[in-house]
Amino acid sequence: MTPRDNDVFEATTPGLPVARPQASGRFFESLRERLPRGALSALGVAASLAVFALAAYILGRTLSSLSYADLLNAFRATSGAQILASLALSALSYLFLTGYDVVALYHMRTRAPYRVAALASFASYAISFNLGFPVITSAAVRYWIYSRVALNALQVANITVFAGVTFWLGMTLVMGIGFIYGAEALAALDGLPTFLHIIPGVLILAGVLFYFAWVTVDRRTIRLRGHALELPGFIPTVAQFALGVADLCCASGALYVLLPEGVPLDFVPFVAVYVVACVLGVISHAPGGIGVFEATMLHAIPAASHESVLASLLLFRMIYYFIPFVVALALLGADEGARRWATLRDAIARIVEERSN
């Protein structure tokens, strides 16, 4: 997870009293000082608006040419087996997401019951996927739940950051593999030479391997806005990669099984396209990447008709986003109701005991 423009991001190793900025850190600090104040933030906003505007234009053109009768027929053509498979893969994806918090708690040497970690993780992702602003919404939901087991705001913030890093590690690893092994299929989609997909894939995997080696050969600490955060070692990092890849494969698989028959795209290059669509959705800051994700997938997936792909995307949005959102709200409501009832029951028991005495 990359820090914001005004974050302080320094690497330290044990034995050094103070973190010394590396050459790349000094370069970026110097560049930041030379730019006008707020320039990087303005560039980020401009990039988000540009991505969203382009996606809106592509999506608008696509929707204007759709036949709604064909769209309804595409919905009807989706079998019950496809929907059940998508539901099962979505459930597996959210199950792997709960592992993000479990590994974070293990790394922080902090204990919490699995049911608490699972509820915090599931609810935070189900809500942030739909409402957007994941740093705020995820942290708020996690703090509401973890505060009951005596975790403070700083610990919850560390869990949120750790989970975000896990998500992006999985994204980058899958993207690198997809670009390399699906290079020919991707080249057939966008018309670019195969090597223009292999080169970024190799660079991405090289960066992933460098990060893995960097955090495993020695204990590392980063400073984020003056706060020291210890990076995980070998075992937690392996767990991060495994959980990130498993979650992403299940999430993309939940959409893949909904695609109409005859789509000439194998799973590996499809996952690469899925990751790119997710990244563009994140850049746009649209809640759940809505609109941007759909426009990217409609443009990239070869199919007999846009209606058939759009039907799959809408079903996926319902299964992977909306249903978990409703379930998360219900679970949070039930959990809060049970907690209030337990408090009320204890209070009534004390009153009865005092009167009987």
Rank of each mutant, 00 (worst) to 15 (best):
V263W: 01
L265R: 12
P232H: 11
V257W: 13
L189K: 04
R220E: 02
A277L: 04
L258C: 06
V238G: 03
T221L: 00
D247M: 15
L189S: 08
G244Y: 05
L258V: 07
V215F: 03
P232Q: 11
A277E: 03
V271Y: 05
V275F: 05
L255T: 02
A228G: 07
L255R: 05
F195N: 05
P264Q: 08
P264L: 03
A188V: 06
E230Y: 10
T194V: 12
V238D: 07
F270S: 08
E184A: 10
G233W: 01
T194I: 09
I198E: 11
T194A: 05
A246W: 07
R223A: 04
A213W: 14
C249W: 15
A272H: 07
W214N: 11
Y256S: 02
L243F: 13
A228C: 07
L189W: 00
A272C: 02
A187G: 04
V276R: 04
I198L: 02
A254S: 15
Q240Y: 15
A239K: 13
P264M: 06
P232Y: 04
E261F: 15
T237S: 13
L259V: 00
D218T: 02
T194M: 10
V257Q: 09
G226S: 09
L243A: 06
L196I: 03
L192I: 02
P193V: 00
D266L: 13
V217D: 00
